[in-house]
């Protein structure tokens, strides 16, 4: 028993040196060689710096909306709504999102609202929307910003990376930065 306890303490110590000390330092070393020194991908615009893959809240009509979020896009925390698919309270809030969206986008037909625009993501920080979700906002943005619809459509197509695996998607922050820059010109 006594021998076992002694071994347990000493083994814990030396394995911790290896798995916490050495391993962490090795990964930190690789991080220094990684893009942006391992601090996460960043983007700069007008002197502001953003993380490109942490979603932001876009609720103003002049921007493409991002998805609803259970944590209001504050990345001091993260999480989803965790509402069951048949929860009456949840279904009422989805209905309210549909109504709000239609009120701000009167020209949109309800049957073309993609489901990602009215549901909250798992992290609450989803940086993406679907391509359809961007496209149905074109009319609104075009009217507010006085930009030609075909130009906006082109902008969306440029932002769609068409990945080999996984769904097509649009990074809302990148799209809105691009939108801001063509508005100025």
């Amino acid at each position: 028993m006594k021998a076992n306890i002694l071994i347990a303490f000493r083994l814990t110590f030396v394995v911790a040196l290896l798995c916490v000390g050495m391993y962490t330092l090795i990964v930190l070393g690789f991080a220094k060689m990684a893009p942006n020194k391992g601090k996460g991908f960043e983007l700069s615009q007008n002197g502001k710096t953003f993380y490109s893959n942490i979603g932001q809240s876009f609720t103003e009509d002049k921007y493409f909306y991002s998805r609803p979020s259970a944590v209001a896009y504050n990345a001091a925390g993260s999480g989803g709504s965790n509402k069951g698919p048949n929860n009456p309270e949840y279904l009422a809030s989805v209905q309210a999102r549909i109504d709000t969206f239609l009120a701000h986008n009167p020209e949109v037909n309800k049957s073309s609202i993609p489901v990602d625009l009215i549901t909250a993501s798992g992290s609450g920080l989803d940086p993406h929307i679907s391509v359809e979700a961007a496209k149905i906002q074109i009319k609104r943005i075009s009217a507010i910003r006085k930009i030609d619809e075909t130009l906006l459509l082109k902008l969306i197509e440029q932002q769609n990376g068409k990945p080999l695996f996984g769904p097509d998607k649009i990074n809302v922050l990148r799209l809105n930065i691009a939108l801001d820059s063509i508005s100025k010109n």
Partner: peptide, 25 residues
């Protein structure tokens, strides 16, 4: 997708997206 959302008359093609991320689908 969630049949309850389909009943509301929206485009449910992406499937059940509540609690899911767009980049994974």
């Amino acid at each position: 997708g969630n049949p309850q959302l389909l009943k509301m008359g929206i485009d449910n093609a992406l499937g059940a997206m509540e609690g899911k991320e767009v980049r994974f689908g």
